[in-house]
Structures are given as C-alpha cells and as structure tokens.
C-alpha cells in the first residue's frame, strides 16, 4: 500500500466504479458505484474501499485504550469523560482490587485521570474497565491532548513510532485512542522533549516517510540537549 494511492475524498464523491469492490467504513453503495460518506483519505485493500477519517470527534470502539477524567461519582462506579459523544461509566465491579463500596472517592476523585479500556459500546453509553494490567489512575507526569485521528500516526506501524520516541526521550508514554497522551519521565525536560516529539509527528501527519524524519529530529534534538546537559553538569562541578 503506497502513500500515493491515498487521495482526499469528499462526501458524495464516487470513489470506485463497478461492483468488484466492497464498501468499507465511511462509504456506501449507490447503484453500481461506491460513494464516500465522509471527508477523509481513500484507502483500498483486498477489494475493500474505505475512508480513513482526518478529523472529527473520537468514536469509541471495543478494546480501545483511552485516558479519561472522572466527571462524577455514582454509588457503584465513576462517570467518566473520554471526549466521546457518549457518556461513559467505570463500574467498581470492573476494578481489580477490593474496593470498599461506601466511599468511592477514596480511590478516584473528581478530576483524576484514569487509563482504562473500552469494555463495551452500547446504545446509551460506553462501559469501561481497568481490569487488564497497567491500567488505573495516572499520577505524576503530564498529559497532552492531540486530535484523536492522529493517534495511529503517533503509535506507528505496530508501535514503531511510539517505541522510538520512548527510547529517545527515556519516558514512559501511554497513548489513549481518544487523543489523550500521558508522559512520565524522570525529569521534566525529558517529558517536554517527548511532548515536542509527539507534536512533531502530529503536525506532519501528511508527510511521507515520517518515521525516518522523526528519527532524524530525535537524533538532532538529543545532540542539542546532550550538549546543554553536559554544560550544566560541568557548571555544577565548578
């Protein structure tokens, strides 16, 4: 799949004539043709045509890792805000440890950030879980928000992009599918570096060969930062 085949399509545009192909997400069949239903990039794979969204709000899918804010506390769980058009709920039953039910604010208070997984998407809302390993309240570190449609570029193919950034910046990074990213490093400088690297990727989401360009950017930044770090250390010695 080459990047050049990807073309921006607009709603109502015929993106494939004839009935050899199947209409995928963001498309529909109109008579003999497949027509785009939304604005995005056309993508063809194995006789399936779909439109990759470029913009718009986050639509939760089952199994997505998201970062949410506690919006309210109910008697049996927490109402969460995950930047989606549906209300989402994290029940106590979906918490791994024994949680005393009488005061839930002991565990998560309003405004706390929690990494969770989408358990199910129903008509009326989204149910979340923190049962799988590595989920739960996010403490320290910093949070940044990007457009949720750019998350796949930040993660890269099989996590190539994000693991490169993690390695270069020496930070622990959790990317929520809803566009919230949590960065935890040893120093604030490292965290800021990671933030810059992520913004570098999101600003260039159209560019081809982004992985190589990011690699170069990281190398250059490390050189720059490496020097300043050394200078500081020497200064301390004196």
């Amino acid at each position: 799949m080459s990047e050049k085949d990807r073309e921006i399509v607009i709603p109502g545009e015929i993106i494939k004539e004839g009935d050899d192909y199947l209409p995928g997400e963001g498309t529909r069949r109109e008579g003999k043709n497949i027509v785009a239903s939304r604005f995005g990039l056309r993508d063809e794979q194995n006789k399936l045509v779909k439109v990759i969204p470029l913009s718009g709000v986050y639509i939760p899918r089952r199994g997505n890792l998201v970062i949410g804010t506690v919006a309210d506390i109910a008697f049996n769980g927490w109402m969460m805000d995950i930047n989606a058009p549906y209300s989402s709920f994290l029940p106590v039953a979906e918490c791994p440890r024994f949680f005393k039910k009488d005061d839930l604010s002991e565990y998560f208070g309003i405004g706390d950030l929690i990494a969770c997984k989408v358990d199910s998407v129903k008509r009326k809302g989204v149910d979340l879980t923190i049962m799988p390993r590595g989920l739960g309240k996010l403490e320290d570190g910093m949070i940044i928000q990007i457009n949720s449609n750019k998350v796949p570029r930040v993660i890269g193919k099989e996590g190539s992009m994000i693991s490169m950034i993690k390695e270069a910046t020496d930070c622990d990074i959790t990317v929520g599918q809803n566009g919230l990213i949590w960065i935890k490093g040893n120093k604030v400088d490292d965290e800021l570096f990671a933030k810059e690297a992520i913004l570098f990727v999101t600003e260039r989401s159209f560019v081809e060969g982004l992985t190589e360009k990011t690699e170069k950017f990281l190398e250059e930044e490390i050189k720059k930062r490496g020097k300043t770090k050394k200078a500081e250390v020497e200064g301390d010695v004196e």
Binding site: P11, G12, G40, G56, V57
Partner: peptide, 11 residues
C-alpha cells in the same frame, strides 16, 4: 460539517 468528519450524503 464535512471538515468535522460528519457522515454526509453530499455537499
């Protein structure tokens, strides 16, 4: 509306 990724029949 198109830019916001809202599903549309046409413009």
């Amino acid at each position: 509306l198109a830019h916001a990724g809202i599903p549309m029949r046409e413009l």
